[in-house]
């Protein structure tokens, strides 16, 4: 009897959590296919279609707005930001973890502090740099500027990760006939893959969600990404195109959600390893 009660409590909690996670997305998906007239009527049940579903908001989103361009721009920006971040953060973190002795500790902390400077302070000076480089109104402004956030954070994340790889492994590889680079590539890097995965996810998410740089550096619709393009095109004055807004959100969020879900165990290992060693140090 008591065991059954406990089971009941457990499943109730699971269902509540599930609703908490799924309801907003489900609501977005349902709203996507709603007719305007039903959406704005007060008496209507928000979870069912009393007047039947429609594809109009989706068609509007893909044909009458820059949404496909926004998605493409976001993907290009994301790929470049991830690439730059990994290429800079991995060697930086490895070097800080291994080669600089006492300086490694304080430099790692200094790099993390850079990450804490908010973009709301940085966007004005960075805008001047972007203009000076002739990159304003192009997606390359974001490719250049977003790594200022992702590189320090990922360096810090990977620093903890590389520290958790015993130095004896590098040394064993050196004695087994590897160069310093060979030891890094063949022995250390494979141990750090979950950490690098975590960095890829972080850098990509950040490049997708960053709003302030996207809005301030790019004012041309054709060069906008999702985070700036969707709200500026689908909110016109005080008119909100709710079904199309919801469609834009769901189309981006659902595939990402599934991808993160599949990678979850792997990523948690990455973040845990990092956090654990930081706490020890």
């Amino acid at each position: 009897m008591q065991r059954q009660l406990r089971k009941l409590g457990f499943y109730t909690a699971v269902v509540l959590l599930l609703l908490f996670a799924v309801l907003p997305i489900a609501y977005a998906v349902i709203t996507t296919f709603k007719k305007e007239s039903e959406l704005f009527s007060f008496g209507a049940n928000p979870f069912i279609y009393e007047q039947g579903p429609t594809l109009e908001p989706l068609i509007f989103l893909f044909t009458d707005t820059g949404f496909p361009t926004f998605v493409w721009n976001s993907v290009v920006i994301g790929v470049f930001v991830v690439a730059i971040t990994v290429v800079l953060a991995v060697p930086a973190a490895y070097a800080l973890a291994r080669l600089t002795g006492r300086w490694g500790e304080s430099s790692g902390m200094a790099i993390f502090l850079v990450y804490l400077i908010p973009p709301t302070l940085l966007f004005i000076p960075l805008f001047r740099i972007v203009v000076w480089l002739g990159l304003a109104n192009t997606i390359w402004s974001l490719v250049l500027v977003l790594p200022t956030i992702t590189v320090p954070f990922c360096t810090w994340l990977l620093l903890g990760f590389f520290r958790s790889v015993p130095q004896e492994l590098d040394e064993a590889a050196l004695l087994d006939g590897c160069t310093r680079f060979g030891a890094f590539r063949k022995v250390v890097l494979p141990q750090a893959l979950p950490g690098i995965g975590a960095c890829v996810v972080f850098a990509f998410s950040l490049s997708l969600s960053n709003y302030i740089y996207s809005v301030t550096f790019i004012s041309e619709s054709a060069a906008r990404n999702i985070s700036a393009g969707v709200p500026t095109e689908l909110i016109r004055g005080d008119v909100y195109f709710w079904p199309s807004l919801m469609a834009a959100t769901a189309i981006v969020a659902i595939p990402l959600g599934i991808a993160y879900g599949l990678l979850f165990d792997y990523l948690v290992r990455g973040f845990q390893a990092s956090g654990a060693t930081e706490a020890e140090g």
Binding site: P166, E168, L169, E171, A172, A173, L174, L175, D176, G177, C178, T179, K186, V187, P190, Q191
Partner: peptide, 29 residues
């Protein structure tokens, strides 16, 4: 450099490469 000294070391922690099998560990050098 260590890679050109023909010195083999057995570490206290053994320092086996965790991402590859025993066979690959032995093949590594």
């Amino acid at each position: 450099p260590p890679r050109r000294r023909n010195v083999a070391m057995v570490f206290q922690s053994f320092a086996l490469y965790p991402h590859i099998t025993v066979r690959e560990n032995i093949r590594f050098p």
